[in-house]
Design a binder for these strands. Structure first.
Length: 600
RNA sequence: UGCCCGAUGGUGUAACGGUAGCACAGCAGACUCUGAAUCUGCUUGUCAUGGUUCAAAUCCAUGUCGGGCAGCCA
């Protein structure tokens, strides 16, 4: 391996990525603006994380890692009707998997059950919740942050706002609220007294009013060109149990109110989110500055979310695929979810390399899936064990090879990593080769086996096709071949050049395995461009076959990755059991032959 | 419609007033006991029009196109 390739192989892990957000952070570090950089990854637990979240995770944890900071994992759980512990658990698992051996030492968790502490900062009442460094305590005693853990403090801040005359209880119906806001019209309840607002808000909290009858609204500017400044709602009534706080509350803060304050309570310095929140930034800043808080305020920065070709990314649509049974679950290997990609056999390293390669900007583009596929192949090429397996078997009999004789041939585990050694592969008179590797009437430039033609069996002999046997329907069911018995590696004619080399397995020794061949879920680059995205589902996105594998594959492990030579990369599926192998095709090898234009 | 944001090869991204570079994709070739990997070479780009400047992808203005927001979702 040359110096250049060594450097290239390790580059993504060593090179410091650069983008406009990191530039800002670097500037703050240079001017010593904060004692420590503190980011956060704040998913709502209302679905599984997808590759778009992976981009955000890599950004937020990457910044923490590169600038000696911390990144909190926070459940943004202010809407009890949509959230669930199932999602809390999956989010934790996915984040931990993605950042393992990379930024897990930057992961901000908190001591289990911890709530914000009341303290005095610069002579002023304040609240703060600090992050525990996970390495310092057993994971069982730590947990992610929850916005819902701050409901008491957030409620207190709302009361402060009311006292300052900056918030009021509004009795308008949802429809009226909409109508008034659209027409820049003041709510008739806007000028209620502080005392009345305080009383009403307390009674909202006490559960005196049904859902939807009253809200708490910030008093900002009903005529603002920015809709989010037209007296936005900051609290609504929801008589619903919450997955984390149970029945403690019947009023819940809106995102805009809860998010900036959660950032403040955790001491976040850089609150990074996607572009659609850009118009909310003035409100984010308004709330924090209106409250006269004693510690430095967090600031919001926005970047473009990921769009990937040939898939959909919204949680709503992914949820639909799951609920309508169009996939087997959130972790179906065809899903762009982190758990789906993991099950498919994609590694965290590949996902991180992908995130690095696509960069961070404010431009809304669609990333070519080929970029993802390249990152996956590059990673798997380095780590996958090479194995021989035949997906669609065609029987071959070597007529000049003695029946009953078995040879153990030496096969390289990984030519990219010679230190991984070799394993023995049995060879015998009856073999399977790939149906695609034989053509009775070969097209031009067909390098594989044809009547009267020769081909190299990988690690074994050069064989010549002498006879083609067909069934009554005319299908080729068996080939009779002769081998050049001196052409084995180390043999007299081992150096003979034949154009093609194909893979094979010994029929008597072959181990059957269920193999799930996955392809892209949709047939078009932008499934959600117009109409119903489900009409573009790829009917051939999953095919299940029984393959014949070399015996060493019987001891395949879930952690390992395999390349079935000349075919694709595979990973063991969780459905495997002792004596029952199930492989998922992670991604095919590049196939330039398949791209040859059809020639007559 | 109002407000906000954006625009660099086919795609994604760099260049921070001074030689338009990288990656993916594509094409051609070398090598090959994987039609993979690896290696070599190549094609293709600053949305438009003005202005500022010795010098503009970069600054300004206008326009065009694209995206976002207008939930008691996040």
């Amino acid at each position: 391996m040359s110096l250049a390739t060594t450097a290239a192989a390790t580059a993504p892990a060593e090179i410091r990525p650069s983008d406009f957000i990191r530039d800002i952070v670097a500037g703050h570090v240079a001017e010593n603006k904060y004692p420590q950089i503190h980011t956060r990854f704040p998913p709502e637990p209302n679905g599984y994380l997808h590759i778009g979240h992976a981009k955000s995770i890599c950004l937020n944890f990457g910044i923490a890692r590169e600038f000696g900071g911390i990144c909190n994992l926070r459940m943004d759980d202010t809407n009890p009707t949509k959230e669930d512990v199932e999602y809390v658990d999956s989010i934790q698992a996915d984040v931990n998997w993605l950042i393992s051996n990379w930024a897990d030492d930057r992961l901000g968790y908190k001591v289990k059950g911890a709530l914000p502490a009341a303290l005095t900062t610069n002579g002023q009442a304040d609240h703060f919740i600090s992050a525990a460094v996970p390495r310092l305590a057993p994971t069982a005693t730590l947990e992610p942050f929850y916005a819902s853990d701050y409901f008491a403090e957030i409620y207190g801040y709302a009361v402060e706002l009311i006292k300052a005359g900056k918030a009021f209880v509004c009795d308008l119906t949802p429809e009226e609220t909409d109508e008034y806001r659209r027409h820049a019209k003041e709510s008739p309840f806007r000028h209620r007294s502080v005392a009345e607002n305080l009383d009403l808000f307390a009674r909202m909290r006490a559960g005196e009013f049904p859902d939807g009858t009253r809200t708490l609204r910030a008093k900002i500017d009903v005529a603002s060109p920015n809709i989010w400044l037209r007296d936005p709602l900051i609290y609504r009534i929801r008589h619903a149990d919450h997955h984390h706080t149970g029945s403690a509350w019947c009023i819940y803060p809106m995102y805009d109110f809860a998010h900036c304050l959660s950032d403040y309570l955790e001491g976040i310095t850089h609150s990074i989110c996607t572009l659609e929140f850009e118009v909310h930034r003035p409100l984010y800043d308004w709330i924090l500055t209106s409250l006269n808080l004693p510690r430095p305020l967090p600031h919001q920065y926005e970047f473009a979310r990921l769009s990937l070709g040939y898939t959909v990314m919204s949680k709503r649509k992914l949820m639909q695929l799951v609920q309508e049974g169009l996939v087997t679950g959130w972790d179906d290997p065809r899903m762009p979810t982190i758990s789906g990609l993991r099950r498919r056999g994609v590694t965290p390293e590949a996902l991180r390399a992908f995130a690095y390669n696509i960069g961070i900007t404010k431009y809304n583009g669609i990333t070519d899936v080929a970029v993802l596929e390249h990152a996956i192949r590059e990673d798997l090429n380095k780590r996958a064990f090479r194995r021989l397996a035949v997906l669609r078997p065609l029987k071959v009999v070597i007529t000049n090879y003695p029946a009953g004789q078995v040879e153990e041939l030496n096969a390289t585990n990984n030519p990219e990593a010679p230190e991984t050694g070799t394993r023995p592969v049995p060879f015998s008179r009856e073999l399977y080769i790939e149906q695609d590797d034989f053509r009775e009437v070969p097209p031009p430039k067909f390098f594989r086996l044809k009547p009267g033609g020769e081909v190299r069996l990988k690690y074994a002999y050069i064989i010549k096709c002498e006879e083609v046997i067909k069934d009554a329907a005319g299908n080729v069911i068996e080939l009779r071949c002769t081998a050049d018995l001196d052409s084995k590696t180390g043999g007299a004619t081992a150096g003979r050049k034949v154009k093609g080399t194909i893979h094979w397995v010994s029929a008597a020794h072959a181990v059957p395995a269920e193999v799930r061949l996955y392809d892209r879920l949709f047939t078009v680059p932008e499934p959600d461009a117009d109409g119903d995205f489900k009409t573009h589902l790829n009917p051939h996105s999953k095919e299940v076959i029984t393959a014949q594998c070399e015996p060493s594959l019987a001891s395949a492990t879930p952690e390992s990755r395999y390349q079935f030579e000349r075919l694709a990369y595979f990973a063991l599926d969780q459905d495997s059991a002792p004596g029952k192998l199930v492989f998922n095709r992670t991604i095919t090898l590049k196939d330039n032959w398949a791209k040859e234009p059809p020639k007559s």
